[in-house]
Simulated assay, not measured.
Amino acid sequence: MSLETVAEKGLVLLGCGKMGGAMLAGWLKGGLPPSSVWVLDPHPSDWLKGTGVHLNDGLPDSPAVAIVAVKPQMMGEALPGLRALGNSTTVFLSIAAGTPISAFEAAFGAQSPIIRGMPNTPAAVGRGITAIVGNPHVGEAGMDLAEALLSAVGQVARIETEDQMDAVTGVSGSGPAYVFHLIETLAAAGVAQGLPEDLAMQLAKATVAGAGALAEGTDETPTQLRINVTSPNGTTQAALNVLMDADSGFPALLPRAVEAATKRSKELANG
């Protein structure tokens, strides 16, 4: 199944908030005709109204894909609107956190092709990463289609089993918040050392963004990159002695943070 098939048969988007809107913008920019898109959203934004898509205007008979992009607490009210598409060739792609594939099989029918995805918020600027996993009815063509669609907002990674999704949530789904907090605290630390607030924040944002881009844009590992900028007995080494402390530094804190997020993801999935 290709993007040309999506243009021909149609795409349904249930929910067009920040994440759904970012994806829709990417698809339209990539050439998907607005006439091939049906959006169901009770509170459409002015931007959405101006895209030319079918808005709250029924559904096509057998769309190539139906994407669930509503918040988990809205599932009960929103999912029945797509039930007529179940147990057919339409591929359902969910990007709703904490909702397992089994819940969609119950809502749409056990024979429905269903893919569960976990994107993260950098998708809003085309720099996200989404992990995906499908049920046995999806097939390789359906997974390829999901990957092609989600590539509009960043990278896509396939995981082997759905139970890995909780750990994905702990690392990349919730991960941007960890980085934002790093920026906050790094800037505050600069202020504590005498920098003006605006300068400290500018330095912190650019440092984190630049380091991330460098880590992605080189073949060297993050470990080697760290070694490259750490002179023996220099300023960076003095800081890393604190951050790499086994009891109070990143090696102790980050595993606890990811474990807490993973545990909470499991709790949400189990109701």
Rank of each mutant, 00 (worst) to 15 (best):
E162P: 05
Q202A: 14
D61L: 14
K18T: 14
L243Q: 10
A141K: 10
P222W: 15
M19N: 03
E160L: 10
T221W: 14
L3F: 10
Q111R: 09
A215M: 13
A252G: 05
E160D: 14
S36D: 09
A209P: 01
L254Q: 11
E184F: 00
A148F: 08
L182T: 03
M1Q: 10
G10C: 09
P136F: 14
D61Y: 05
L186S: 06
S62I: 01
S35K: 14
S62F: 10
G154K: 03
A152T: 00
V12E: 05
A260V: 01
G271W: 00
L254V: 04
G271N: 11
Q111V: 00
M74V: 15
A64K: 06
S172Y: 01
D219N: 07
A103E: 10
S62C: 11
E267F: 00
P119Y: 02
A189P: 11
S102K: 13
P63D: 10
G86I: 07
A260K: 12
H43M: 03
M23A: 04
A106D: 12
L254T: 00
I159E: 03
L48A: 01
H181E: 14
E77N: 10
G21Y: 02
L254P: 05
K71S: 09
P222N: 12
P136G: 12
A25L: 06
L253T: 00
G126M: 05
N228Y: 02
K205V: 11
F104K: 01
P33S: 07
L79V: 15
L82K: 06
S36K: 08
I129D: 02
A239M: 12
G31H: 10
L59R: 05
A97Y: 04
D247S: 12
A239C: 13
A252L: 11
V138W: 06
L85R: 01
A146Q: 06
V208H: 03
G17L: 04
K18N: 14
P42W: 09
A131F: 01
A123C: 12
R158E: 08
V53F: 08
